[in-house]
Design a protein around this nucleic acid. Sequence first.
DNA 1: AATAATTTTTAGGCAAACCTAAAAAAAATA
DNA 2: TATTTTTTTTAGGTTTGCCTAAAAATTATT
Lengths: 221, 221
Amino acid sequence: MSPNFSIAEENYIKSIYNLQQVNDAVSTTALAEHLKSKPASITDMLKKLQAKGLLLYNPYKTFRLSKEGIKAALSIIRRHRLWESFLVHKLQFSWEEVHEVAEELEHVRSKKLIDKLDGFLGYPKFDPHGDPIPDTNGKINIQQQLPLSSLPLNKQAIITAVQDQSSELLSFLSSLKIVIGTRLEIKRRLAFDNSLEIKCRNRQPVNISEQVANAIQVNPL
Amino acid sequence: MSPNFSIAEENYIKSIYNLQQVNDAVSTTALAEHLKSKPASITDMLKKLQAKGLLLYNPYKTFRLSKEGIKAALSIIRRHRLWESFLVHKLQFSWEEVHEVAEELEHVRSKKLIDKLDGFLGYPKFDPHGDPIPDTNGKINIQQQLPLSSLPLNKQAIITAVQDQSSELLSFLSSLKIVIGTRLEIKRRLAFDNSLEIKCRNRQPVNISEQVANAIQVNPL
DNA sequence: AATAATTTTTAGGCAAACCTAAAAAAAATA
DNA sequence: TATTTTTTTTAGGTTTGCCTAAAAATTATT
């Protein structure tokens, strides 16, 4: 008897989950931006989610999902990622265009459908973006994390975190379109300074220093 | 630029389409029953649909979809029937349990998704219930209708109508679990009385008289 | 044709999910 | 610490889609 949430609620739950993966707790403004809505609307929904026991929330403070909320989030994320896999592997959608469609499909709430789809796809462990797919029970493969500098040559990996107090590095990387979630591999390792030539999907390779590579955490696929 | 309808609107359009297939025009009460809602709610929506040019409607009279409305209906029905096919043929859902899930999937409005799904399924002409699937342009195969008595041996067909004033025949047939929509084929034709041995899917064959076979209209697959 | 019964619409409300503008609280700064 | 700035919440409003109860129109019956 897993409870049923409205589409709006599901979107909030998923967004909060995604944001708190990065920052541990979420602010009203951040969530409003993520959902392209207004802070006042967020407050409305926070109260509803808290009343349902999905959210740990004190007025004027940041908030995060409860155990229950995380369970709900993982089930929504499972649906999303399985549909993305279906779209790419069965319907030949390209990697970039699946998100929007999966965003709609994920709201079809039939456990049987999703479990059958999972089987049809061969119980994939990762979606086409390299993100892990939670299993029927909501268990998600803990992402193995290592510094980019220790990633073997030509092995694909996803950026999971960037160690950076100043956020200078973060903005440098994001100017290169390298952000958390970006999939990349190392094409070359230059011996004289240990700098790396990295390649993101279909983009031109870029060169980064050993120090930067040490600060980037990745999850090998 | 096909216009986008809300889920509620789509459900109304589809129900009106289905009802007017039987009766040519639809009444407020009939639609309310079909949608499990109340007549007053129907009136509300009728005004909206008329304002959008989807409905031919005069207050206190029966109504029907406009050209535009039929076009919209066919696109929704296309989605529904393709998803039903997917569920049965790819995910091994049984024939009876697909409707509910397809009811949700049909509201995912991505033409590209549906056209790709169509290709993935091999451009099926009929859904698992035997109902015809409209093509990308909304063209639907007109159901060829003939009396069961003229159906060739071993050719599958779907019952589309039963000619019966008294409804005595209808209740007799439904006691045999033979209703509109039932899929069957003729296994034997007995020469001495022209009675037929018919077989429905995985059930035991039953025998029906020539008169009954004349009253049953079918659509060969 | 007049009246009764049924069907449909109108009127007024409700809940969900959003919004803007103003008030309150928290955080940053002088 | 006091003040300013930023963030969050409250108050009140909108739209969509539904509801009930009463009024109006249509249909059926006498």
